[in-house]
Nucleic acid binder design. Structure first.
Ligand code: FES
Ligand code: FES
Lengths: 143, 143
DNA sequence: TCTTAAATATGATTATTATCATATTTTATT
DNA sequence: AATAAAATATGATAATAATCATATTTAAGA
């Protein structure tokens, strides 16, 4: 469903959501191993997310990445879109074009509602909420 | 959701399901344009499907590809699996591993049921049925 | 102000997927 | 038997995604 980059991005952001704050920044070197993503790769992704203001960072000693309170309010789908997955999410199951409800392809009825439901949930769920789920044991942090 | 190869495979098989029979074979040269897939590419995919007995073929003049009555009974999911998408379908949304219901990752609750529903429908719907949908105008042939 | 620890910018390499090309085999027709 | 029209087998190339590497900039602390 998602590209590796997107999976990694979500894992990284989640990690920060659980483990960081403005007072407790996380350094890329520490993070990579903890979320099981190659260091140089996750570094690049973090830079991308930072440029798009989905995560916060400061340079220099004592610097690192973290999520501001504002960052934590972002929805999961914001991350997905930031990683350029919108087209993949919206494309027709059979063509390379956008799904077209008025001209439903042969698989449309087998998947459209479900796919929409997933997108809706991704778009309604904030990082904060996911952290809450992890803390209450409803879900587990993905390694 | 699917790779290009899988999309193309499904389109090709559907095309054959609608337009071919043992008495009415279809030649790769004709088909490519009609389903909007590069000729050499779809040729390769058809060979793969043929080797896996999901479509039928005969060589030589008057030869071509077609679906036997048996072929038409296959489920959409059979095509998907033949194109090696099983791992993609079953993998966890966040890791590269299989989805694990007992250790649900943070996105599991946002997508698992829907993903399962899609797989179930793909696995319950035969090519014949899709042809029926097309004939009754419930869906449209994908170009 | 020097050093050092961090992110940032940029680009190179590798692996995978998508696409193209062509020689070989089979079989119907003449 | 010879020809031609088809699939089959095999491999080459191109595009994209994944991964790696490194020089530059920033800012804290000595
Ligand atoms: S038209 Fe193909 S999935 Fe909607
Ligand atoms: S465990 Fe991640 S999707 Fe099920």
């Amino acid at each position: 469903m998602f590209s590796n980059s997107t999976k990694y991005a979500i894992k990284a952001v989640l990690y920060l959501a659980v483990n960081s704050s403005e007072e407790k920044k996380v350094v890329v070197n520490d993070m990579a191993g903890l979320i099981n993503v190659p260091k140089a790769y996750i570094a690049k992704i973090l830079q991308e997310l930072s440029k798009k203001n989905l995560i916060s960072s400061t340079r220099g000693p004592k610097g690192g990445f973290y999520l501001s309170e504002d960052n934590k309010k972002a929805k999961v789908y914001d991350i997905v879109i930031a990683m350029d997955e919108e087209q993949r999410m919206n494309s027709c199951l059979l063509s390379l074009k956008k799904c077209n409800i008025d001209n439903p392809c042969s698989l449309h009825h087998l998947a459209y509602n479900e796919k929409e439901a997933i997108i809706r949930k991704l778009n309604n769920t904030s990082l904060e909420e996911l952290v809450e789920h992890i803390k209450t044991g409803k879900s587990v942090f993905p390694i």
